[in-house]
Each structure stands twice: as C-alpha cells, then as structure tokens.
Design a protein around this nucleic acid. Structure first.
Lengths: 195, 195
DNA sequence: GTCTATAGAAAGATAGAC
DNA sequence: GTCTATCTTTCTATAGAC
C-alpha cells in the first residue's frame, strides 16, 4: 500500500501510547503535559489530537488495554485443573506479569481517580473479572477440602495485594532472583490457604 | 496572651495541612493547586506561603508527619514479648492504623515521586525503620522455632503489602466488620509464617 | 496575618497552512 | 499527518497595602 511521506498513522499511535504510559507512570497523569508526551515521540503537541480526543481518553485507553491484555494473557496460559496447582500457577503468573508490566500495574492502581465515573466503572469491571479467576480457584479448592479459608473474597484480595507488593521493592539483579522470590511466595500462599 | 484580630498562626497551620492532605490524597499532588488548598481553608493563595516555603515542602511535611506519628503510635502501643502475640498485635495495629489514616497511607505510597532525592531518602528511611519492627518480630519467632520463614525480609514485605491492600476495598458498614477482617487476616498471617 | 494584584510561565485544546 | 501559531485558562510564587 503506497504511502506519502510523513504519513505514519499506524506506527505513531502505538508510540504515543508507549510514551504516555512511561511518562504517566513515572511522574503521574496530572504532572505530565501533552507537550511532554509529544516531545518524547518527536511530535508537536497539536498532532496528538489526531490520535486521542483528549488527555483523559488517552489514560483510559492505556488502562483498558492493560487490563484486557492481562486477562488475555492469563486466559492464553492454560490453568491446571487441580486447585493447588492452579493456585501455584496463578501466583507465578501474576508476579511475572506484574514485573513485566510494572508501569501499567502502577498506573492502573494510582490513576483511577483521574477517570470519570463511567470510565472508572469499566476498568473496575475488568479488574474484578480478573480477580474472579483467583476467587474461583480458591472456591474450588475450598469445596474440594484442599484449602481452609474463612472468606474466599478476603483471601483473594490478600493474595493479590501481597503479590502486587513485590513490584515496589523487587529489582532484577538484586539479592534474590525472580524465580527464587516466586518460590517463596508460592510457599507462603500455600501455607496461608492450607487446611 | 493577647492577640490581634486576624492572627491565627497556631490554628491556620494545621488546617492548611489537613486540607492539603485531603486534597492531595483525593486528586493527586500535581492535580491540586495552591488556590484549591487555600479555598478549602478559607484563605487566599498567597497566605499559604506564610506556612510553607513551597508546595513540595508542604507535601514532604505531610509525609514526614505521617510516618513519624505511625512510628510513635506503634511505640506507644507496647508490643507483647512472645513472638506469636507480637505478630498478631502488629497485624491488628497496622490494619487499624491504616484504616484510620487512609489518606496519609495513600499519599505516602503514591506521591513519593514528587519529592526530590533528599526528601525521598528521608521518608524511605522512616518507612524502613517501621518495617524493621515487623522484621524483628519475625526474626525472633524464627530463632525461637515458632515460625518457619524462607526469608525474613520477604515475609515482612508480604505481610505489610497484604494488610495495606485492605485499604483499597474495606468500607465501614460493609459485609464484614473491621474486627472480623482483622481476625481473618491474623489467621492467614499466622498460617503463612507457621513452622 | 491576610488580602489584592500581578508577574511570568505553562497548561489543554483548536485553526489553518502545507 | 504534521506543524506553527495562538486562544484562553490556570498555575506557582512574590510584592506591597492594610
């Protein structure tokens, strides 16, 4: 398909979103100007408005994409049937995914307040859908007598929060490897839900 | 002590900090203007500069006060000697304190990036000092054979993150009371560190 | 101690040339 | 598809009156 010079619609969009993700995560949504995002991509500020109607929609698209790709990746990595194996798998998947998409994770927790009510509800629905995957594993293990949980929803939130916390301190090349941390967290989670 | 009309130095300072805490937590540091803070207190923007040299110092003072009062409160609530009792006590204290100071907790995790390097280091040192209280409990319990931990530092971070997560979903008057949630978390933590 | 007024910089978004 | 130029608003911080 022939294209005239200066026409980069299909590549510029992703580059804008990548720049915005990086800058929003690093400095915060409100602290980053459209001019900064444009400069990061090598554009003038006005050109951004060919790709997003406004700044908030740009943020919403980042959060929506982050959640959708998380769910798609979890779905693609088939979960074992057996509850204990499924739980171990969830812990390792969630930790690895979080570390590989740290900027998106940070944004999706910190910048929800910059969405309007409708967009906020959409992102929350996606997050809840993901959390339900873990809740179902726990409920199945509880029903089968493998786990002993006072409350499935609280255990779900506790496990996710615990793993999310890894992003605040883990550094590649630090004292413990990613695999070693994963092993230790799997062990702690196993014990926490054990019957 | 005689005081002329319009002189409220001793009361205005705390009111400014309270307003800034509320607004920063709700909308984010960068999204809140000095005018908004002043309006919340019933002042003009210029008057704020009698109480803080600039906006960032106002944020730093909030974070420092939050951490110092957290540590002071934990110190004042005497910790049991026995490791398991001390751990239970820490879980309940940390959860309750977080819920009572949700805005400060949120700020102290979300707005660190708005501090310069020196101020950031000071806040991190305070946080580390607090985390060490839990680490010492875990290490003592490990040494006494009450706990089995693959790594004391990881267990410390995991427990704190797990409890911090409560702030994102707990609502007073919801399905479970604060005490009920505390009981369940104490149970999960006990099991996670059990030998 | 607080106000009004303002300096000076920067923001989001749009119009129109190329 | 992108740029230049600009409108309009808002920001932090300061100066000086009261």
């Amino acid at each position: 398909m022939a294209r005239r010079t200066g026409s980069h619609s299909d590549i510029t969009g992703p580059r804008i979103r990548a720049a915005a993700l990086k800058l929003f995560a690093r400095h915060g949504f409100a602290a980053v100007s459209m001019r900064q995002i444009a400069a990061e991509v090598g554009l003038q500020a006005g050109a951004l408005y060919l790709y997003t109607p406004d700044k908030q929609t740009l943020l919403f698209d980042l959060l929506r994409t982050h959640m959708e790709e998380l769910i798609a990746a979890y779905t693609a990595a088939s979960t074992p049937e057996e509850p204990q194996a499924a739980l171990d798998h969830f812990v390792r998947f969630h930790m690895g995914r979080n570390l590989d998409h740290a900027e998106g994770v940070f944004l999706s927790y910190m910048e929800l307040r910059n969405l309007d009510a409708e967009n906020f509800a959409r992102i929350e629905a996606l997050r809840r859908g993901y959390e339900d995957r873990l809740a179902h594993i726990l409920a199945a293990g509880q029903a089968a007598g493998h786990f002993r949980l006072a409350d499935v929803r609280l255990a779900t939130m506790a496990i996710i929060a615990m793993i999310n916390g890894v992003n605040t301190w883990f550094r590649e090349g630090g004292r413990l490897s990613r695999t070693a941390v994963g092993d230790i967290y799997v062990d702690m989670v196993r014990k926490a839900v054990a019957s």
